[in-house]
Design a protein around this nucleic acid. Structure first.
Length: 871
RNA sequence: GGGGGAUUAGCUCAGUUGGCUAGAGCGUUUGACUGGCAGUCAAAAGGUCAUCGGUUCGAUUCCGAUAUUCUCCA
């Protein structure tokens, strides 16, 4: 079976068991502060397990794009070195939400693996939970007995809490799990050591392929477990590993999932896969990372310098690094692999085909910039090597290596590699110490203490009524206290709410809740696991009371203006720049709007002007909002709405139409476009290769902006006595100004020349030195400097002291001919320091020329006589 | 969110006890050589040393804030 058939067989199998087959959620997670990327198949069902949302189908199956690079599952540094770890991988899974439980889960897993995929029974081992006294959970005998139908006792292993008890986090739903492992070693190896002794021991050919989780408990913040009323099944099977087992390979990378890409890498590098261990690792790293980066980009996550975007950048850089070190690539090459990846996986994931050009551009740009980083790092390292050698050392300080890594992004392994070639080493302990210090600083800065939810009442959800009203009566369902570094605040969840929680680029509402004449401010509203969480600085005296919740209307209306304007902008962009335009991000706040979209070149001034005009036309068309709630997604697409890649939609979506603009959107909008009044583009720029950003303002802000500009224009015009053509008047002024400037310069030169001539007459020759000490009447130090340099050019053996009073302060210059400096050991710098005492100042400079200043200009005559004494 | 860096000519960057008429390479313009191109040589133009404030006789340089940006950590 090829990988495509293996994937389809899984889905077909569970469809036949009455499972709803759902699409993969985007790999990039939005609206969950605890998670950046989807790292398991169950992520998209988290709300259901937490009881925040009802399940639409009791049985579900899918294949899910996952990324494991940070947090609990951090495999990044292992990827490529072995044959079975990945950053991005597909997870096949089936779920029961309060429907079937252990029996069906185990029976079906067995049926699929053994009867359908034909994996030999003697290769299989399973594990069950051994129980935990502290938690008061007994051994999972139920799972044991179910497996015992298929497998002998010595193939059913008991595992501890670490391996066989699954938890979502410190608190929340959890339960025992049962894993299925496969031993794919040959018979000789099996004879030496039994497979059962290698299960969960990290052996590359005795591996876990499927984990069946039985969610039957909820762990409270105090650590106690309580039995759940509805029990769930959550399973996950590694697709790449499954392919390896079924295709009889020894490595995930030998399957058809990766081989095309690896062949292409080998071709570009001029090497053969399987001939050199280090080169092989590099090829695996690149093949793996290429998938992760490409899918992240198609899901809307561009590489950037923080958060999720930064994780993507790091993965890409790791690939570049391995290519650089082990395959000899010195120029961008990863972007050239996208074509093969697309040919390979575009069938199952059409987003790759649609966005191929963007992916290539973004990757190439990132490769370029990292290669530049490496170049500066190598330069810095060269000076470090020199310094170390000078000190006769053989070891580079850990701090120095850390600075190179921390500040300049130069990877430690490259530092070590280059140093080794020079016979030097890095103080690894010092590096680790510095790294530890940095980690501690970060951790202590972000520490949050989250209290337990205090439940006041249950309600079926926390329904949002804010589309229709900005004020309503609410009761608090639950609340908790959160302590951060900047103080503490409270999170409140209501039974219903008019507050819009930050989502889809639109910022959260603010406002107040009021009871018994006491108002409490809600300063922000956010979404957490599909719950609308209101943030307040204080807690009401009587949380059980009924409150009047009021949204800050002014801000909400301004936000609505900007949000609708964003839709109109999107529409105008597609009209004027082309239908390839897709949203790559947006921010809608009361103050302004920001819209990111893919476009291959700079938007010209002329295009920008047309876009702004077009949006304003659409505003004046005064189209009414045509809102459709709870539309099946297929129907919405028929209406012309375009779903975004990287956005997770439910079965039912909300469609917002204004004239020809049709969008899937959960945000807040004006009733008719005329309300927006005015739309002004403030800037256009690039945020990444192939992605442009437009920032704009509307309504009051736009009016203010325009009237401010008109006002300054009027004021400037008035300064010119209101000419017919202001621009010409300004240009003329510039021309005149420049001409005058030149005249002044010429005049200054001339007067300097005159002054110089006069000075030439006053030169005395003392002891073979041409000496001159004079006070000048000028108001610009540059003139003195100029005269000094001119005199130096005309008089040999010169010892010159010039001084002037400028702005009530003394300004002194000393110039000494170079030959005097050499022959007589004179130094203008030290001389002027001494002389400057007479004017209560100090100075310095070079041996032949130095300047000084002082607070007491009255001391200048004394200074000049002192200078004479020096000769 | 926290730490560290960077910001100097159109571009890439030098610039240490704070005083060096603020530099280099590439690019641009002009001139010379050449039949033309390419090239070589010569010259010139081009700078608010990111912005604002402070310390100082004097700040590109030291300090603080802001902006932009890079980088590491969470």
């Amino acid at each position: 079976m090829n990988s495509k058939q293996i994937r389809q067989t899984f889905l077909d199998f569970f469809a036949s068991k009455e499972h709803e087959i759902v699409p993969s959620a985007p790999m990039v997670v939005k609206n969950d502060p605890t998670l950046m990327f989807t790292n398991a198949g169950m992520n998209q069902f988290k709300d259901i397990f937490l009881g925040n949302s009802p399940a639409n189908h009791p049985r579900v199956a899918d294949t899910q794009k996952c990324l494991r690079v940070s947090g609990k599952h951090n495999d990044l540094e292992e990827v490529g070195h072995d044959t079975y770890h990945h950053t991005m991988f597909e997870m096949l899974g089936n779920w029961s939400f309060g429907n079937y439980f252990k029996k069906e889960a185990i029976d079906w897993a067995w049926e699929l693996l053994v009867d359908v995929y034909k994996i030999p029974v003697d290769k299989l081992y399973v594990t069950i939970f051994e129980g935990d006294e502290k938690d008061g959970v007994p051994m999972d005998t139920e799972a044991h007995d179910l497996w015992f139908k298929y497998l002998p006792e010595d193939r059913i292993l008991k595992g501890n809490k670490k391996d066989n008890f699954w938890e979502m986090g410190d608190s929340g739903p959890c339960g025992p799990c049962s894993e299925i492992h496969v031993d794919i070693r040959n018979e000789d190896e099996k004879a030496v050591i039994a497979g059962r002794d290698l299960v969960n021991e990290g052996h590359p050919q005795v591996i876990e392929i499927w984990n069946l989780v039985f969610i039957q408990f909820n762990r409270k913040a105090n650590g106690q477990l309580e039995e759940l009323p509805a029990k769930h099944v959550d399973t996950g099977m590694g697709f790449e590993r499954l392919c390896m087992v079924i295709q009889g390979k020894q490595s995930n990378y030998d399957t058809d999932v990766f081989q095309n890409v690896i062949t292409e890498i080998a071709y570009l590098a001029g090497k053969r896969y399987g001939t050199d261990e280090k080169a092989d690792i590099a090829m695996r790293v690149i093949a793996d990372h290429l998938r992760a980066i490409s899918f992240a980009i198609t899901d809307g996550q561009l590489p950037s310098n923080n958060k999720a975007g930064y994780v993507i950048r790091r993965i890409l850089r790791r690939a570049v690094r391995y290519g650089y070190t082990f395959l000899g690539f010195r120029k961008p090459f990863i972007h050239q692999l996208v074509k093969v990846l697309t040919e390979n996986m575009g069938g199952a994931f059409p987003e790759l085909i649609k966005q191929q050009e963007l992916v290539v551009n973004v990757i190439r740009e990132e490769e370029d910039s990292f290669l530049r980083t490496l170049e500066t790092g190598i330069k810095l390292l060269d000076t470090i090597i020199e310094d170390t050698r000078k000190k006769n050392g053989t070891e580079v300080n850990g701090d120095v290596a850390f600075e190179l890594y921390d500040t300049f992004g130069f990877p430690l392994d490259l530092t070590e590699l280059i140093l080794r070639e020079q016979g030097l080493t890095v103080n690894r302990a010092g590096f680790e110490l510095a790294m530890e210090g940095q980690k501690n600083r970060s951790r202590s800065a972000t520490q949050l203490e989250t209290g337990d939810w205090i439940e006041l009442q249950q309600s079926a959800g926390d329904g949002f009524v804010g589309y229709d009203t900005l004020e309503t009566k609410v009761k608090i369902n639950r609340y908790r206290k959160v302590k951060g570094k900047k103080g503490e605040f409270f999170q409140l969840v209501f039974n219903t709410t008019p507050f819009y929680a930050e989502s889809g680029g639109q910022v959260g509402d603010s406002g107040t809740i009021e009871a018994d004449g006491k108002k409490i401010e809600i300063f922000d509203t956010v979404k957490e696991n599909n719950l609308t969480v209101h943030l307040s600085k204080e807690l009401p005296d009587h949380p059980q009371a009924t409150f009047t919740a009021v949204v800050n209307m002014k801000n909400r209306r301004l936000t609505e203006n900007n949000h609708t304007a964003t839709h109109l902008l999107d529409h105008a962009l597609r009209e004027i720049l082309g239908t390839h335009i897709e949203q790559k991000g947006s921010l809608v706040s009361p103050d302004s709007l920001r819209f990111d979209f893919n476009h291959f070149q700079k938007v010209t001034e002329e295009e920008l002007a047309r876009i702004q005009v077009r949006v304003n036309e659409l505003i004046r068309a005064n189209d009414k909002r045509d809102e459709h709630r709870e539309v099946p997604i297929a129907e919405a697409e028929k209406m012309g709405a375009i779903a975004l890649f990287g956005e997770k939609y439910g079965d039912l979506v909300r469609v917002i139409k204004f004239g020809e603009s049709v969008e899937l959107c959960g945000g807040c909008h004006v009733e008719s476009t005329g309300t927006i009044g005015q739309f002004v583009i403030l800037s256009e720029g690039s945020i990444s290769a192939g992605v442009r950003r437009i920032e704009a303002i509307t309504a009051d802000k736009a009016d203010e902006y325009i009237s401010n500009h008109l006002k300054s224009l009027k004021e400037v015009s008035a300064l010119f006595n209101n000419p017919a053509d202001l621009k010409a008047a300004v240009e003329e002024l510039f021309v005149k100004f420049n001409a005058l400037n030149k005249q002044v310069e010429a005049f200054e030169k001339e007067s300097a020349g005159k002054m110089k001539k006069e000075l030439l007459l006053k030169v005395e020759t003392i002891n073979g030195i041409n000496f001159l000490a004079q006070q000048l009447n000028v108001d610009n130090a540059a003139i003195i400097k100029d005269i000094a340099f001119q005199l130096k050019g005309e008089i040999d053996n010169l010892f010159l002291v010039l001084a002037a009073e400028i702005d009530g302060k003394a300004n002194v210059h000393v110039m000494i001919s170079e030959n005097l400096v050499k022959e007589r050991g004179l130094n203008a710098g030290t001389i002027i320091r001494d002389l400057a005492k007479a004017v209560n100042g100090g100075g310095g400079g070079q041996a032949f020329y130095a300047t000084a200043g002082g607070k007491e200009p009255s001391g200048i005559p004394l200074l000049l006589t002192n200078a004479r004494k020096l000769i």
